[in-house]
Design a protein around this nucleic acid. Structure first.
Length: 768
RNA sequence: GAGCCCAUGGUCUAGUGGUUAUGACGUCUCCCUUACACGGAGAAAGCCGGGAGUCCGAAUCUCUCUGGGCUCACCA
């Protein structure tokens, strides 16, 4: 079977499914609910095979749980909010958040989203993902889009609830600010990148003496409030006042023990604000701050440099230092610079008024909650714990962007008090004010709508509540919360997982999930990460066209163990996947010649057949254990090993002549093992297993089908012995020039196989 | 700088004190044998990341180093 034939079969199966989607969710079912909070993919992202692997893992969870008898809630979501959408809209449609009117800007984002609307949906279908529905239905299990009125209204209701409970407050604090995205960032949105940066040594007049100090950010000289040295540093004993070059401003020399005597010249320039350390020292010594970088990344309030961009100002200041003879040395050092997670631009510390959701006071509780969720693998919990430990401030949730959920607040023009509306509907305060809304403090009806939106994660962190009908179907929610499982990538533990936990706890006092499944990533043949800039990503569309869905799904478990570490994408593993499908298809073709539906157990089962049935049943039970632990990697290896290396290579070879002769016991055994194998493999590779099953057994693979086999026995040693003897016969025949189907004499059947000697005599044509 | 995880033939792996260290993919050789040449049989390929220690005995336990991954902090 070649790829084109396989793909045709997959399309046929998919067409069948589409007729009466068999993966729906029914609230009425008596089966236990198992809910999966799948990461909604970004609609405009180019999905590569790494994504396919991660989602395959999730779909296998859904299919396995269904086969185990659960009523699986597995909604399909599309993430359509946030910076990534805006960044791409700016690129594709040339809109600019500083210049384009809001309506027009939002429209551009919508156009972009429309353009990509169905792209990923089809890719997911062709990979066989069994979401409850691919359509937005508004019911439990229906697809959802994070920019829909429903989802946004949901997020706003949650905000209003938290606001009214006093869990959200406004404050002016130093924030991480991305001057490219023009918005505040939370700590979780800041990444660090190692960069070469220049360390400048400049000379400064201190109490009349010229002394050297080192800085990586000379452009902050106009914001310098003090120089700082270690009190134990006797080089600087008694020095008190410095005159800064370029600005001529006099600043004090202060002493702090945190200063490293050995770094640079032992003198640190404290500016508002180079980094968090600066901020700490400003606070500690009550220095007067002077913020010289504005929201556009331009210099302000800094003399000749006012109006220049940060990088231009830096050039000019370095130039001026040179001219004034103040520049002593320039050297290149490696530093970790904070950058924006999206634009990768440098993050500046700026003072802004933002809304904050309390999280700092909950650190202990959240640590405890983390311990009550089951992690696969268990070590990945540590990433979450480390993050919680590092939290040192509350979460700024407001963003000065356009495409996201609007913060549902108005401000009273008369008394300045914030006004929150009743939860329920979708509010757009920047363009409307509800008629009945008035200030709760002074009663004024003169209100100004809030223009900011929420941090993307403020929306994303509602997904587990949303899919369970929080606030909408309370009975169902109460019964089924916490959500059963959260599968997600490890890189968004500090954002998506953490914020979901925070929100769920704030709202319900409970953990968000019972289980958390953390997946790693795919790397290319040479061990390199897939990345857009390297251009080494293999797009799912291309892989689907070349190989079909089952092969990609099988690869997800052949390339390595995604829960343990990164997995490798290679032609070799793709070939291996193809061969598995092919082999099983051929086994099925062979078995099909003995007729369909040969699944009724005959009165008498041959002793030899019993060995293989009981051993298979034993392995079947093992696989169910692995499935329950989400160890699909190990499960597939074990299924494959039995079916190909034991069942096909030995059982089938030894019994095929009997099967040709119509031996009922052999034909039943062949069908028993094949049918159960197809069922076991279905959650991993749903298309070809369903196709063969349908053809041979005149029915679809049932949704609820896994149950432990009772008739088991460990025959592994005997089967090993059978394999060894087969090898001996084959090798002997070959070295003696006897064709494999020729007769052989003078070969002894081992003692432990004597009970089954007739099978070997017949199959190998052994002459006694 | 700190913490967590990992290290077995080219690749993915089994192996938690005694094995000639699994198996698969790939490679090589031979073979069209009526399910399958997208097949079969066989072979080569690993001083189990380095070093030290515990033990009669270590891939397996301890320490240490190195290399990789992740996370946090910091670099004037």
């Amino acid at each position: 079977m070649n790829a084109q034939e396989r793909i045709k079969i997959e399309n046929d199966v998919l067409e069948d499914w589409e007729k009466s989607w068999p993966f729906g969710f029914s609230k009425k079912s008596n089966a236990g609910v198992f809910s999966i909070d799948t990461p909604p993919p970004y609609i405009n992202a180019e999905l590569h095979v790494g994504h396919a692997a991660a989602y395959t893992y999730i779909d296998t969870v859904a299919r396995v749980k269904r086969a185990l008898g659960f009523n699986v809630l597995f909604p399909f979501g599309l993430d359509k909010n946030g910076l990534p959408i805006e960044v791409q809209a700016e690129k594709e449609f040339g809109v600019d958040i500083r210049k384009t009117p809001r309506e027009e800007y939002v429209e551009a984002c919508r156009n972009l989203l429309d353009k990509y609307r169905d792209k990923n949906k089809n890719v997911f279908k062709r990979l066989g993902f069994s979401f409850n529905s691919y359509t937005v239905t508004g019911e439990l299990g229906g697809a959802y889009e994070t920019d829909s009125q429903e989802y946004r209204a949901f997020g706003q209701s949650i905000f209003i609830k938290l606001w009214k409970e006093g869990k959200i407050y406004e404050d002016t604090q130093l924030v991480n600010y991305c001057t490219a995205c023009h918005t505040t960032l939370s700590d979780a949105e800041v990444e660090y990148e190692e960069k070469d940066s220049k360390l400048f040594t400049i000379s400064v007049k201190i109490d009349g003496k010229m002394l050297d100090i080192a800085t990586t950010r000379p452009e902050l000289i106009p914001a310098c409030a003090a120089l700082c040295v270690n009190p134990a540093d006797n080089r600087y004993t008694g020095l008190n006042k410095a005159i800064m070059p370029v600005t001529g401003v006099e600043v004090p020399v202060i002493r702090d023990e945190s200063i490293d005597l050995n770094f640079g010249t032992g003198v640190m320039m404290i500016c508002s604000y180079g980094d968090k350390r600066d901020a700490e020292l400003f606070k500690k010594y009550n220095l007067k701050e002077k913020i010289i970088i504005d929201e556009n990344g331009k210099m302000q309030d800094s003399g000749d440099y006012t109006g220049l961009s940060v990088s231009k100002a830096r050039e000019k200041i370095v130039d001026d230092l040179k001219k004034g003879g103040h520049l002593i040395k320039e050297e290149v050092i490696k530093t970790e610079k904070p950058i924006c997670w999206r634009s990768k631009n440098a993050v500046e510390l700026i003072r802004e008024k933002e809304l904050y959701l309390k999280q700092k006071e909950l650190k202990d509780m959240l640590t405890e909650l983390s311990g009550s969720m089951e992690f696969y693998k268990k070590e990945s919990r540590q990433i979450l714990l480390d993050w919680i430990k590092s939290i040192d401030r509350d979460w700024p949730i407001s963003r000065t962007r356009y495409y996201g959920t609007e913060i549902p607040l108005w401000k009273c023009k008369d008394c300045g008090e914030y006004v929150a509306p009743e939860p329920g509907r979708y509010y757009q305060p920047w363009k409307e004010t509800p008629k009945d809304l008035g200030c709760g403090k002074c009663g004024s009806k003169k209100l100004t709508g809030e223009t900011r939106i929420f941090d993307t994660w403020m929306d994303s962190s509602n997904s587990n509540l949303f899919i369970l009908g929080y606030g909408k179907d309370s009975k169902f929610f109460e019964k089924n919360f916490p959500t059963s499982i959260r599968p997600q990538g490890k890189e968004i533990i500090r954002t998506w997982l953490f914020y979901t936990m925070l929100k769920s706890y704030q709202l319900t006092g409970k953990k968000p999930f019972n289980e958390v499944l953390i997946t790693n990533h795919a790397i290319d043949e040479f061990g390199e990460k897939f990345s857009k800039s390297k251009g080494n990503g293999i797009l799912i569309e291309k892989a689907l066209k070349e190989n079909g869905g089952d092969v990609i799904r099988l690869w997800a478990y052949l390339g390595g163990n995604l829960v343990e570490g990164d997995i490798r994408y290679s032609k070799e593993k793709i070939n291996e996947a193809e061969r598995i499908i092919n082999k099983i298809s051929n086994i099925a073709k062979f078995i099909s010649q003995f007729g369909k539906d040969q699944t009724t157990q005959p009165n008498k089962i041959d002793g030899f057949d019993e060995v293989f049935i009981k051993e298979f049943n034993r392995i079947y039970n093992n696989i169910l254990i692995q499935y329950n632990q989400y160890d699909f990697f190990k499960a597939l290896r074990e299924i494959k090993n039995f079916v190909i290396n034991i069942f096909a290579d030995h059982y089938l070879e030894l019994r095929k002549s009997s099967a040709y002769g119509g031996d009922k016991s052999a034909i039943f055994t062949l069908n028993h093992i094949l049918m159960n194998t197809l069922e076991l493999l279905n959650p991993i590779a749903p298309f070809f297993t369903q196709h063969i099953y349908q053809g041979l057994y005149s029915k679809d693979i049932k949704q609820s089908i896994f149950s432990n086999k009772l008739d088991t026995q460990d025959f592994s040693e005997l089967i090993q012995s059978i394999g060894d003897f087969d090898s001996t016969v084959w090798t002997t025949k070959k070295s003696s020039g006897i064709p494999l189907n020729g007769e052989i004499s003078g070969i002894a059947i081992p003692a432990d196989l004597q009970n089954y000697k007739d099978v070997f005599i017949k199959a190998h044509k052994i002459k006694i």
